[in-house]
């Protein structure tokens, strides 16, 4: 792997963390202001009584908003914009939802098993109208497990960059270039974990999250195509175009 000095790793962690905070969509201070308010029972019931396609559209819009912040984050990662456009797109198509799922733990209240959504904190029951309760449960379980790691913002930042720069994505044209970037990012991840005096298994724990993320993203794609088989017109005319570009 590339030999990288500690000073360079410090600098890499700092720039990635700065990019993360500039593009994180929700600053934790903002969330504190909402005083972690959860939806009232009446509000929960109104989500539950929405037609399935409307709730799907709402969630597709929210995911698409989050994706745009992840694209901005990627553009700020050292070396990403030097990759060929094909690979930039391959990495974003495969990795943006993974980063969103990781970022979700910043917006997650594990005491109440709820996530910041559409203005307040929502439990899994808010999403019942989607008709994919098992996937929603797995997403909440993942958020809970990420929260229990209590990652700091700079650890989340570097782990997000590490996920985006996955050299094992199919269709990459310059695999070696991506591999080099990912190796450097992994060194930065080890560096920030050591600097924050994390116990030895921390990096392995994070790496074990990768397979869970891959599975969640695959299930999202499968659930979307099952939905589209039933409502092709809704997806074609009412889903954000960027969402369809990424997951269509």
């Amino acid at each position: 792997s590339p030999s990288v000095s500690t000073a360079e790793l410090d600098h890499l962690v700092q720039t990635i963390s700065k990019s993360h905070l500039e593009t994180c969509q929700y600053l934790t201070e903002e969330l504190q202001q909402t005083s972690w308010q959860s939806f009232l029972q009446a509000e929960v019931e109104s989500y539950q009584s929405k037609p399935r396609e409307l709730m799907w559209q709402l969630c597709a819009v929210k995911i698409t908003e989050a994706v745009q912040y992840v694209v901005e984050f990627a553009k700020r990662i050292d070396g990403f914009m030097e990759l060929c456009q094909n690979d930039q797109i391959v990495l974003l198509k495969a990795g943006s939802l993974e980063v969103i799922l990781v970022r979700m733990c910043r917006l997650f209240d594990s005491q109440n098993n709820s996530v910041y959504f559409d203005g307040k904190f929502a439990g899994p029951d808010v999403f019942r109208a989607l008709g994919c309760d098992d996937l929603i449960t797995s997403v909440f379980d993942f958020a809970n497990s990420m929260c229990s790691l209590r990652l700091s913002e700079d650890e989340l930042a570097v782990f997000s960059a590490f996920l985006l720069l996955s050299a094992d994505r199919s269709w990459l044209q310059e695999k070696l270039k991506v591999e080099k970037l990912q190796q450097k990012t992994q060194l930065a991840l080890q560096h920030v974990l050591q600097k924050n005096r994390r116990e030895d298994g921390a990096l392995n724990k994070l790496r074990s999250k990768v397979s869970a993320l891959r599975s969640l993203c695959t299930r999202h794609t499968e659930t979307l195509s099952a939905f589209r088989a039933v409502h092709p017109d809704v997806v074609r005319t009412h889903f954000p175009p960027l969402y369809k570009e990424l997951f269509g």
Binding site: Q68, V71, R76, M81, Q85, Q88, I89, E245, L246
Partner: peptide, 14 residues
């Protein structure tokens, strides 16, 4: 293909 993603990548980092 990926018209919007291309566009977002071209825009100066907002």
């Amino acid at each position: 293909k990926h018209k919007i993603l291309h566009q977002l990548l071209q825009n100066s980092t907002s």
